[in-house]
Simulated assay, not measured.
Amino acid sequence: MRIAIAQIDTILGDVEKNLSKIEHYTDKAIEEKCDLIVFPELALTGYGLRDLVYSVSVNVEDSLFESLKEKSGFIDISFGFAQKESGYFYNSAVYLSESNVLTVHKKKYLPDYGMFEEERYFAPGDSIETFKTKFGNTTMLICEDAFHISAHYEAFKNETDFMIVLSASPFWSDSESMKWEMWENTCKTSAQLNGYFVAFVNRVGFEDGVGFFGKSFLVSPFGNVIKEASLFKEEMLLVEIDLKDIERARIKMPIKKNEALR
Results as ranks from 00 to 15, higher is better:
Met1Val: 13
Ile8Asn: 02
Ile11Trp: 02
Gly13Cys: 07
Asp14Ile: 01
Lys17Thr: 07
Leu19Ala: 10
Glu23Val: 14
Asp27Met: 05
Ala29Asn: 00
Ala29Pro: 00
Ala29Cys: 07
Glu31Val: 01
Cys34Gly: 00
Phe39Arg: 00
Glu41Asn: 14
Gly46Ala: 03
Gly46Ile: 01
Leu49Met: 08
Arg50Val: 09
Asp51Trp: 03
Leu52Asp: 10
Ser55Thr: 11
Ser57Phe: 02
Asn59Arg: 09
Asn59Ala: 14
Glu61Val: 04
Asp62Trp: 03
Leu64Tyr: 08
Leu64Val: 08
Phe65Val: 06
Phe65Tyr: 10
Glu66Leu: 09
Ser67Phe: 02
Leu68Ile: 12
Leu68Cys: 13
Lys69Gly: 06
Ser72Lys: 04
Ser72Phe: 07
Gly73Thr: 06
Asp76Ala: 14
Ser78Pro: 02
Phe81Leu: 05
Glu85Leu: 05
Tyr88Thr: 03
Tyr90Phe: 12
Asn91Met: 10
Val94Leu: 08
Val94His: 03
Lys108Met: 10
Pro111Cys: 09
Asp112Leu: 10
Glu117Asn: 06
Glu119Asn: 12
Arg120Ala: 09
Thr130Asn: 03
Phe131Gly: 01
Phe135Ile: 07
Phe135Glu: 00
Asn137Tyr: 10
Thr139Cys: 10
Cys143Gln: 12
Cys143Gly: 04
Cys143Asn: 11
Phe147Leu: 15
Ala151Ser: 15
Phe156Thr: 03
Asn158Glu: 11
Ile164Val: 09
Val165Thr: 14
Val165Cys: 08
Val165Asn: 08
Leu166Pro: 00
Ser167Arg: 10
Asp174Ile: 05
Glu176Ser: 14
Met178Phe: 12
Met178Leu: 15
Lys179Trp: 14
Trp180Ile: 02
Met182Asn: 12
Glu184Val: 04
Thr186Cys: 06
Cys187Arg: 00
Cys187Tyr: 03
Ala191Phe: 03
Gln192Tyr: 11
Val198Ser: 09
Phe200Trp: 15
Val201Glu: 14
Asn202Val: 12
Asp208Asn: 13
Gly209Met: 11
Gly211Phe: 10
Phe212Tyr: 15
Phe212Leu: 10
Phe213Ser: 11
Lys215Met: 15
Pro221Leu: 11
Phe222Thr: 08
Asn224Val: 05
Asn224Lys: 12
Ile226Asp: 05
Glu234Gly: 05
Glu235Cys: 04
Asp242Ser: 08
Leu243Phe: 11
Asp245Phe: 09
Asp245Met: 11
Ile246Gln: 01
Glu247Trp: 01
Ala249Asn: 02
Ala249Gly: 12
Ala249Glu: 03
Arg250Pro: 07
Lys252Cys: 06
Met253Thr: 09
Pro254Ile: 05
Pro254Glu: 03
Ile255Arg: 13
Lys257Val: 08
Asn258Tyr: 11
Asn258Lys: 09
